[in-house]
Design a binder for these strands. Sequence first.
DNA 1: GAAAATTATATTGCGCACAATTAAATTTGA
DNA 2: TCAAATTTAATTGTGCGCAATATAATTTTC
Lengths: 153, 153
Amino acid sequence: MKKSLTPSLLLDEQLCFALYAASRRMTAAYRPLLDALDLTYPQYIVMLVLWEQDGVTVRELGERLQLDSGTLTPLLKRLEQAGLLGRHRRLSDEREVEITLTDAGHTLRERAEDVPRCLAEKLCMSADSFTRLRDQLKTLATQLAASTDQESK
Amino acid sequence: MKKSLTPSLLLDEQLCFALYAASRRMTAAYRPLLDALDLTYPQYIVMLVLWEQDGVTVRELGERLQLDSGTLTPLLKRLEQAGLLGRHRRLSDEREVEITLTDAGHTLRERAEDVPRCLAEKLCMSADSFTRLRDQLKTLATQLAASTDQESK
DNA sequence: GAAAATTATATTGCGCACAATTAAATTTGA
DNA sequence: TCAAATTTAATTGTGCGCAATATAATTTTC
């Protein structure tokens, strides 16, 4: 059967809605696991970055996660309040705020080690489909970023 | 090369982050198109449902979009304020609130007709990849919903 | 037919996202 | 050198998402 040439307004045909719904489902699937660590999903991905590379600035964190300071500043303050990290102006350039993990922040990593495996079990997906889907989504995001940037030519 | 058997905490290997980032990019790609219609992305998908089926209840809308009344009630009030729809208790069962499009709400559909095509152009994706990715995401969402529901056994 | 359970929506509160603005530090360049 | 431009965070305001609770209507059950 020939694919319709005129994209429709039907909800079930939209890629955007499939993406939006799947993303919220994914966050919901993480919730019980992250509740045990007292983290929200956005806080978790911030911690993922910090566990990889401690001492990054808010700007670097924002570039990595594609989030701006309006989102990150209050989120980081909550993680600071929770005792997981510290926020300090850099001496070399006082416009920058460097984020450093506390001992508690480093320790939490061990308790998080099981999260990816627990989630993988919920997916019921082969390692291949997992990788393929992930990479398709990365490509899509890159493509959308490119055409959105181009707009503000 | 053998796929690692122990899922890592590396950000770039996470399916969840690829999904989360792609979903936000997608919403960002819609933004300039929807700004012209004075709609946000969540408001747009509500309108998609209503253009398909007018006179649904908040509950039916919530089931379709997987959103609860805490999200929908204020969103619907904003669309009512904008003159696109009306909210009325059903006479048959006064617990239910029925959403009906106004003339302006129906008319907006015509101006929205071009949105899917405009967005499709930003994707640079074959109709096949589009459909395949969309259906993979639907499957993923279904699987996650199933295993999340099961948790509250 | 009245109490108990269920259903549907609304409300409240918190935590993102993101646009727009502000403020402060640094860099650039005439 | 010093004023203008740029860079970096923080702040403000709006609109989701979603959990928890409240309220009101309906259905069930005895």
